[in-house]
Simulated scan of single mutants.
Amino acid sequence: MAAAVALGEAARGSTAPNPNVGCVIVSPAGDIVGRGATAPGGRPHAEAVALAEAGNAARGSTVYVTLEPCAHASERGPRCSDLLADARPERVVVALKDPDPRTAGKGIERLRSAGIAVTTGTGRKAATASLSGYLTRLRLGRPRITLKLALSIDGKIALPSGESQWITGEDAGRHVHLERARADMILVGRGTYLADAPRLDVRLPGLEERSPRRALLTRGDAVDGWEILANPQDVYRLHDVNDLLVEGGSATATAFLSEDLVDRILIYRAPIIVGEGKSSFGYVGLDVIADAHGRWRPADEQRLGIDRLEVYERVRSA
């Protein structure tokens, strides 16, 4: 299942609105005979790709897939639950049941009705993390929103003049580009657009084509090559976006935090002190310190050259 999750994770940012699923097929002898991930644009699905590679070797095999095989009809391709039933594996191991009401247990039922053993829950935690954008969109009706900030030790994002390039170093910059490759859309505010003219593309060798769509938070005029969101609540209109990366600046970060729309924060902290300068956030709707506690949990921390990455996730009730 870990291999299936890795395949699905590599497809993240290219499959929306479909989930970035991974699939591995193992023969009775223990050999991997098929591998697949959801293709760019969402079709073919991971199971279809893996089954095509496995061919007749899929019969009697064990199939590992990160999300329940689809059970709904589509003009774009066959039901994966039907493909698997026809391929006759011995067992299908599913990490997560699909919350999409068009499938939601029907895929597993289809397999079991065909006499195929189905196991669920294996690799659930890793699959949930990899599919978090899709799962968030199904649960909350909007993309999973990640806020990225580059800060000094004392929490500044720029000098008083507004200069902010470059707070962090090359290693942190490469990590940011990897995060971009995993996103379906990147958003900045009008101020950042006017001050920095950001390209917001992916500049990692081999991943240049993974540059996501660009969005601008503004009530102003449209800009060629950019999609416009008039306010943070417009994210609920992004039905074809699983993962949204918000890159700046302070007013935009504050606006999304004030609306409680941020699910994950990436802080790239550089070993510098700015002193007087521009703060990362403005007023986010809290008047009592006690209300700030328990809202965020540390999820990860790592060194990136001389910089440090801190990852925080929003704590939400189920």
Rank of each mutant, 00 (worst) to 15 (best):
R12A: 06
C70V: 10
G8W: 04
S211K: 13
T62N: 06
T136V: 01
A215H: 05
L131W: 02
G155K: 08
I157K: 01
S317E: 12
G30V: 05
G34K: 08
K106Y: 00
D224Q: 14
R12M: 12
G305E: 14
G41I: 01
R199A: 01
G248V: 09
Y312E: 00
K278M: 13
I272H: 00
L238E: 03
P78F: 10
N231Y: 00
E227W: 02
G285I: 06
V202I: 03
G189A: 11
G55D: 15
I267G: 01
V65P: 03
I167N: 09
P40N: 13
L261V: 05
S152Y: 01
G169D: 12
E310T: 05
R180W: 07
V202R: 08
G277Y: 05
S161G: 06
V26A: 01
D240Y: 10
A127P: 08
D171E: 13
A270I: 11
P99G: 02
D291S: 13
T192N: 12
K97P: 03
I289Q: 07
Y64D: 00
P40R: 15
V315E: 10
R182Y: 04
A114H: 00
R137W: 15
P160Y: 06
T122C: 00
Q165T: 06
G133E: 13
A54C: 09
A222T: 10
L111I: 09
T252M: 02
R144H: 12
